[in-house]
Write a protein that binds this DNA or RNA. Structure first.
Lengths: 190, 190
DNA sequence: ATGGAAAAGTGATTTAGGTCACTTTTAGCT
DNA sequence: AGCTAAAAGTGACCTAAATCACTTTTCCAT
């Protein structure tokens, strides 16, 4: 477990510095969790008690519309944070599903603990501030790509941006992430 | 000016508490700026020296594609923050335009000053962390709406969510925000 | 108040991408 | 290795929304 916590510390220290004392305080606020492929991290209607840092593995966050169609909000793998941020923040029942595409391991942080470490250790507040900012920028670019690009160029763009992801994920899920039908995606580039 | 700064303080204190001493330190890091309708706050290729809190007025943030078509990333009015966050964060030339739809006033915060007040006053780091998190959640919902909803229901949704905005903004800009052509929007609901 | 420009509305046509139905390929299991 | 199920590919057809061309309305600035 210490080696896994070490990875998390490195993740923090890519952005801010922590003393050993601070880190010992911070790390005590995380819980470990391990799930197999196909198991759920978050489900619609269930409480969302944590946000999750992914030690290893791969998950998809998605919602299901009235017609039963799946729409992928995010893929998340090693070093990514994932949650139903909205439900988590407001401590409301989940509005999306998150499940594992591979066997995965997580460090779990509750809202209470997050606020505790943020107000206790300013560097942590700054870490999450900067992280959240990066996330915001990424989402803005995704919105822009949905507004400005054709389905095909969104696909090419993703191929360039996250080539490793595409190899780990079935194409029909990529399609759902891009907002295109499976059939249409399959007719691209070829 | 003091009354305008007071509005900004209220904006901070909706989320975190600040002592008078902290506030005096924080406020000294903002600059005031005033622009007329049609003037630019940010332009493609120009340095993005600030992020802006809007005291009064209304702006649009948008990018222009190869065909000269405008795609609106964000409308921002009183109490909103706006910038080219990506360029600002990386201190690179602007990638979008931001201009005024109405005469507007701003408080401007440079990256250096933002980091200064965040690392000096932890409450400020927490303020931006929480704000940024809210922004993230909003963008996620917009992405979901682009993936799951038809153009028409996106319009209805916006009408419900921001009725005041729609009255202040020409419909063709709303269309561009929703990712629909002006003509198609004009055929909705009627 | 009035002339000009921007915004909004509308009809005709085109098109990107969706849907449906079916086949082929690939990947996991015992 | 062999069987099953999920994933991927493909053809035929359909539809939401884009585009183009033009008219009407609204908004300002002199």
């Amino acid at each position: 477990m210490e080696d896994k916590l070490q990875l998390l510390r490195q993740h923090f220290e890519e952005i801010v510095s922590l003393t050993d004392e601070e880190w010992n305080f911070v790390k005590s606020h995380f819980e470990f969790k391990s799930l197999k492929k196909h198991q759920f991290l978050i489900q619609v209607g269930q409480p969302v008690d944590f946000e999750y840092w992914i030690i290893k593995g791969l998950v998809k966050a998605y919602s299901i519309d009235e017609k039963g169609k799946e729409h992928i909000l995010q893929f998340a793998m090693e070093n990514y944070w994932v949650s139903d941020h909205c439900a988590f923040q407001n401590q409301e029942p989940g509005t999306i599903f998150v499940d594992c595409l591979e066997d995965s391991e997580f460090f779990c942080l509750s809202l209470e603990n997050r606020e505790k470490i943020c107000f206790e250790v300013p560097a942590v507040a700054n870490f999450f501030r900067i992280k959240s900012n990066h996330g915001y920028i990424n989402l803005q670019q995704r919105i822009l790509s949905l507004l400005t690009m054709t389905a095909e160029s969104r696909y090419e763009y993703l191929l360039n941006k996250l080539p490793k992801l595409i190899q780990r994920v079935p194409k029909k899920l990529i399609a759902s992430y891009l907002g295109v039908s499976r059939e249409t995606l399959s007719r691209f580039n070829s």
